[in-house]
Design a protein around this nucleic acid. Structure first.
Length: 573
RNA sequence: CGGGGCGUAGCGCAGCCCGGUAGCGCGCCUGCUUUGGGAGCAGGAUGUCGGAGGUUCAAAUCCUCUCGCCCCGACCA
C-alpha cells in the first residue's frame, strides 16, 4: 500500500499522556488514538498488527480443535444473576438498561453466555468434548485504565470455553490450550513464561498465566532459580520456616518509641532489622475486624487472607477502628493483650524469638516479646507474599523475582458454571451429568503492546516479522524518473512475491522517510535512490540489526526471502 | 474511592504567583530554492485559554462549583 492512501499520523514528539514505551510508540507510530480513558481507535497500521495477532491465534486455536463463534457484546442481567456474578462482579461490570428498563451489561467475559448456549443446544455425551472460541471486544470498567492498550476498558480478547464429560477430558483440553498458547506467543516473537496463578473473579480450580517478561509489567512473578516452579506473587505459596529460632527468651519490656509509626521509623529508632519486628495489621471485612501478624520485612498477601476469611472484599482498618480495637492511635497496634478480635498469624511468626511489637499505646512498643508466652493467634497459616530469596515451595531452589505482563490466562473451571446454570448432558447410562469446563483468554491488544515492550530501540518499534503491519517498507529517496520507475517495478515485484509492502510515496525528504520507517518498525527497509541506481543497486536495511546491504533489483526477492526465513525461524529476543 | 498533578492552536509547552484582552517550537497552507538521516527563505491560517458561575472597570491569570485526563495507591483476565 502507498503511504498516501493510509492515515499514518506519526508524531515527532512524545505524547504527554503516555508513560511506558509501548504506549508512547503506539501513539508516535500512528497505531492508535485515544477516544476516552482506556478506549482507543485502532488506526490502519495498528489494526494490521491486531489482525496479524488474531490470525496467529485463529490458526493455533483451530489446530487445537477449537471452533470459532461470536457472542454478543451486550448480555441480559438474568444470565449473570444465575451465577451470582451480577452482584459479585462489582463496578467493573458496566450496566445499563434498555428502553424497556431491562437490565443489561457489556460483557467483560462470556462464561454465562456460552454456558447458556451449551445447555440449550448440547444434550449428549456423544457431542463432547467441545471447545468454542471468539475474538471479540470486551468491556471492563477498570478503576484505573492505563498504559494504552495494556489496560484498556474496551479491549480485544480471544476467549475460549471448553466442555468435557469429565475431569480427565477437561485436563486434556486444558493441556491443549496450554500448548497452543505456547505456540501462539512463540510465533508472536515474545519471550514469555507460564506461571501458576490465582483464579480471581473467573473462579475455578487452577490456572496458569502467560507472562511476557518486561520491566514495565504490572504483575510480579516468582520463579525458582534451579527448578521449574513459577507463580504469580498473588498465588505463590510460602513454605513455613524450616527451623524455629531457639535463642533463650528474654523478659519482655516496654520501650518509648516517640512518633515511630512505620516499620522504617521503628527499626531506625530501635536500631533493629525489620525481620525482628512483627507487624500487626487490622483489616475490616465489612462484618468484622481481624488482626494479621506478619514479620516486619514481609508483605500481607490480601488474596490469601481473603480466601482464609472467605470474603471477597477486605480493606485496612481506618484510624477510628484501630483506636477502638487497640485503644491506641494508628501505628502502635500489637498482638500482646489484643482482645475481642480474631488474630491470624503468618507461619513465619511462631519461629521468631524476642521480637518487637506494637504496644497498643501511644509512642510505645514492646521488645523481646515471644510467641505463646506473650501473644498468640487463632490461626497460623501462609498469609504473606513470597519474595526473592525465599525457598521454592517445590523445594527446587531459591525464588527470584521478575515483572511480567499477563497476555494469556488458562483456567480449569470445573463445574462452577455448569452447576450454577444447570449445563448438563446425558451420559451413556442416560444419567444427567454436569459439563466440566475450562476457559482460556488472550489479550490481543496487550499481546501487540507487549511485543513493542520487548522489541524496540531509541528510534522506534522493531516488529517481529510475524506480526509486523508490513514486512517491507519501500523508500524512494530521489525524485528522478529513474528512481520512480525502479520503485514502481520493485513494488510490483515484491507484491507478486507475496510480501506486504508499504510504499512511502510522499514527497518528503529522505531523512523524514528514514525516521518514520525506523519509528514504524517494518522488519526490512528497501531504499531506492539515484545514488544506488547509478551502481545498479538498491539498499536493504534490516531494522533490527541496522545492517545495510546493496542488492541488485533482480536479487532482491530471493534476498528478502532468505532474511525473512531467518526472521521466522529465530524470533529475536 | 484516597493522595498528587495537568487541561492554553493538530502535537509539545510558556504565560497564571503579581489581573490590562495570548505566545514559542514542531506540524499545517502558499510560493521560491533545496532534495540519501526530521531543509532554507518569505508569506499565511488556526484559540469559546476544558465548562459554568462569581469577584472586578477589566479574568487564561483571583474565588467557587463542575467535567475530562495523567501519575501513585486500593482494585483487576
Amino acid at each position: 500500500m502507498k503511504t498516501s492512501q493510509l492515515l499514518i499520523p506519526t508524531l515527532r514528539e512524545e505524547p504527554g499522556e503516555a508513560e511506558i514505551v509501548s504506549h508512547k510508540l503506539m501513539l508516535r507510530a500512528g497505531l492508535i488514538r485515544k477516544v476516552a480513558a482506556g478506549i482507543y481507535t485502532y488506526l490502519p497500521l495498528g489494526l494490521r498488527v491486531i489482525r496479524k495477532v488474531e490470525q496467529i491465534i485463529r490458526e493455533e486455536m483451530n489446530r487445537a480443535g477449537a471452533q470459532e463463534l461470536l457472542m454478543p457484546l451486550a448480555s441480559p442481567a438474568e444470565l449473570w444473576k444465575e451465577t451470582g456474578r451480577w452482584d459479585f462482579y462489582g463496578k467493573e461490570l458496566l450496566r445499563f438498561k434498555d428502553r424497556h428498563e431491562r437490565d443489561f451489561c457489556l460483557g467483560p467475559t462470556h462464561e454465562e453466555i456460552i454456558t447458556d448456549l451449551f445447555r440449550r443446544e448440547v444434550k449428549s455425551y456423544r457431542q463432547l468434548p467441545l471447545n468454542f472460541y471468539q475474538i471479540q471486544t470486551k468491556f471492563r470498567d477498570e478503576i484505573r485504565p492505563r498504559f494504552g492498550l495494556m489496560r484498556g476498558r474496551e479491549f480485544l480478547m480471544k476467549d475460549a470455553y471448553s466442555f468435557d464429560r469429565d475431569e480427565a477430558g477437561a485436563r486434556l483440553n486444558y493441556q491443549k490450550m496450554y500448548d497452543a498458547y505456547h505456540r501462539i506467543f512463540t510465533r508472536c516473537g515474545l519471550t514469555f513464561r507460564a506461571v501458576e496463578a490465582d483464579t480471581g473473579l473467573i473462579g475455578g480450580t487452577s490456572s496458569h498465566e502467560f507472562m511476557v517478561l518486561a520491566d514495565t509489567g504490572e504483575e510480579t512473578v516468582l520463579y525458582s532459580d534451579q527448578g521449574t516452579f513459577a507463580a504469580n506473587v498473588e498465588r505463590a505459596e510460602v513454605m513455613p520456616p524450616e527451623q524455629p529460632e531457639n535463642d533463650p527468651m528474654k523478659p519482655m519490656r516496654s520501650v518509648p518509641t516517640p512518633n515511630c509509626r512505620t516499620i522504617e521509623e521503628v527499626t531506625t529508632f530501635l536500631k533493629v532489622p525489620a525481620n525482628r519486628l512483627v507487624k500487626t495489621l487490622l483489616y475490616s471485612t465489612g462484618k468484622e475486624t481481624v488482626a494479621v501478624l506478619v514479620r516486619g520485612d514481609h508483605a500481607v498477601n490480601e488474596i490469601k487472607l481473603k480466601k482464609v476469611l472467605g470474603v471477597s472484599e477486605i480493606e485496612l482498618a481506618g484510624p477510628a477502628t484501630v483506636e477502638k480495637v487497640t485503644s491506641a492511635p494508628l501505628g502502635f497496634a500489637g498482638p500482646v493483650g489484643l482482645k475481642g478480635i480474631r488474630i491470624f498469624a503468618d507461619h513465619a511468626i511462631p519461629a521468631l524469638r524476642n521480637v518487637v511489637v506494637g504496644g497498643n499505646q501511644l509512642d510505645t512498643h514492646l521488645i523481646d516479646a515471644n510467641w505463646q508466652r506473650d501473644f498468640s493467634a487463632d490461626q497460623v497459616l501462609d498469609l504473606r507474599n513470597a519474595q526473592a530469596g525465599d525457598p521454592s515451595p517445590r523445594k527446587d531452589g531459591i525464588l527470584k523475582v521478575a515483572k511480567g505482563i499477563e497476555v494469556g490466562h488458562v483456567f480449569m473451571l470445573g463445574t462452577k458454571y455448569s452447576q450454577a446454570m444447570k449445563a448438563t448432558f446425558l451420559d451413556p447410562q442416560g444419567k444427567e451429568c454436569l459439563a466440566v469446563m475450562g476457559c482460556y483468554g488472550i489479550g490481543v491488544g496487550r499481546t501487540a503492546a507487549s511485543s513493542i515492550e520487548q522489541n524496540h530501540d531509541e528510534r522506534g518499534i522493531i516488529w517481529p516479522y510475524a506480526i509486523a503491519p508490513f514486512q517491507v517498507h519501500l523508500l524512494p529517496v530521489s525524485q528522478s524518473e529513474k528512481t520512480a520507475g525502479a520503485t514502481t517495478r520493485l513494488y510490483n515485484d515484491l507484491l507478486a512475491a507475496g510480501f506486504e509492502v508499504l510504499w512511502d510515496d510522499r514527497e518528503d525528504r529522505a531523512g523524514v522517510k528514514f525516521n518514520d520507517a525506523d519509528l514504524i518498525g517494518a522488519p526490512f527497509q528497501v531504499v531506492v535512490g539515484d545514488k544506488g541506481l547509478a551502481d545498479g543497486v538498491v539498499e536493504v536495511k534490516v531494522r533490527r540489526s541496522g545492517i545495510k546491504s546493496r542488492v541488485t533489483p533482480s536479487d532482491i526477492i530471493p534476498y528478502l526471502r532468505k532474511l525473512s526465513a531467518e526472521a521466522d525461524s529465530a524470533p529475536a529476543v
